[in-house]
Simulated assay, not measured.
Amino acid sequence: MNLSEIPRVKTLTKEQFIKDYFKPQRPVVIERFIEEWPAYSKWNLEYMRKVAGEKVVPLYDDRPVHHKDGFNEPHAKMKMADYIDLLQKEPTKFRIFLWNILKEVPELQKDFTYPDFGLRLMKTLPMLFFGGRDSYTFMHFDIDLANIFHFHFEGKKECILFPQTESKHLYKVPHSLITHESIDFTNPDFEKWPALKQAKGYKTHLNHGEVLYIPEGYWHYMRYVTPGFSMSLRSIAKNPKNLFSAFYNVIVMRNYDGLMRKLQGQKWIDWKNDQAVQRTNRIMHSTIK
């Protein structure tokens, strides 16, 4: 795929961040920004077992969307200690998604501070994400199109990003936040998905303690090369168009999609997936002409 390496810096000031990355909406990896956090030296899977082992956690995998699934509804649940055992024993598709630190393990707040990037961070939403080797998220963008700071802990994680301007090449599923689920973004079949050859994006691998800035509304695909976990902090979209889209997604799109799932069942899901292909192919053919 046409992917550029995401720029890397050792560290940077908030003035540099605003000028070089936030204003032009460019992603960046900051390699040594959190070494003074207690989390930098403490946070690993064994520490999470210690502080949250008895917590029952929601688990998600890469099964196709089904009309009976609610929005962000988990596919399974187990105790954190048992989940960590699974991560360390063998590859698993199960991931933890959007696990709120403040609600679940308040003491973890003592291990980090909210960094000053020049943006107001939402301090009620520090979220953790866990995954086993080769588990991954579908290519998606967040419903609120927020600015995201993604802090990775333990192991290695592959990240692929695209700006919203590339949506026309990505087989976006209508009334949804994802691309067609059959696409393997680590090894795409260009005969089946030819428009992907025209998409221009970014890639990187995150290691322990590194921070990835994901600009507003960027598509992102995450694959755990090894078992590990990350924390995301976010700041609301500043671009008026993105802010409007965020309100539309939350108030209109999500509710409309839920209603159609109830009314039409799996037919609605199948129609959306078919439309993702048809609409992208139409755009691709019109561009070629």
Rank of each mutant, 00 (worst) to 15 (best):
R133M: 07
D69A: 15
D61Q: 01
R133Y: 08
F17T: 05
S4F: 13
Y136D: 00
T11M: 06
Y171E: 08
D20C: 06
V51C: 06
Y224L: 06
F130H: 09
I288L: 15
K200R: 14
A276S: 14
K203C: 03
F117P: 01
Q275Y: 09
F190C: 05
W43C: 02
Q109G: 07
D274T: 09
M78N: 04
K241A: 15
V29G: 01
G201H: 07
E31G: 02
M260S: 01
L98S: 10
L259M: 14
K200D: 06
R133E: 09
P126F: 00
W219V: 13
K267D: 13
F94P: 00
E36M: 06
G217K: 09
A195V: 06
I283H: 13
L243W: 13
S135T: 04
V105R: 05
M122V: 15
P174E: 06
F141W: 06
T113N: 13
H67R: 12
D61M: 00
R95V: 04
E154H: 09
E191R: 06
D189S: 08
K241D: 15
D116S: 10
N273P: 03
L161N: 09
S4I: 08
Q275D: 07
E15C: 08
P64T: 07
V28I: 13
K123E: 15
T137R: 02
I18W: 02
G118L: 04
A237M: 14
H67F: 15
A76E: 00
A39W: 01
K267P: 00
K55N: 10
L206F: 08
W268N: 12
N242R: 11
Y60W: 04
H169K: 04
S182I: 07
W37V: 01
N100L: 03
E54Y: 02
S286L: 15
F71V: 14
R49L: 10
E54F: 10
E46I: 03
L212W: 13
L59N: 01
F130M: 04
A199C: 10
Q278C: 08
R254W: 13
K156M: 11
A237W: 04
H169F: 14
Y60E: 01
L87G: 10
W193D: 12
V51Y: 12
Q264P: 03
T186C: 03
M1N: 08
M80G: 10
R32P: 00
M122K: 11
S230I: 02
S4G: 00
K172L: 10
A237I: 00
T13V: 04
L233S: 08
F117Y: 05
R254H: 10
E36V: 05
I178G: 00
S176F: 06
A76I: 00
R8T: 11
D85Q: 12
P106N: 03
Y40H: 15
P38N: 10
M139V: 01
Y202L: 05
G118P: 02
G201E: 06
K55M: 08
L86C: 09
F97K: 08
Q88T: 11
M127P: 00
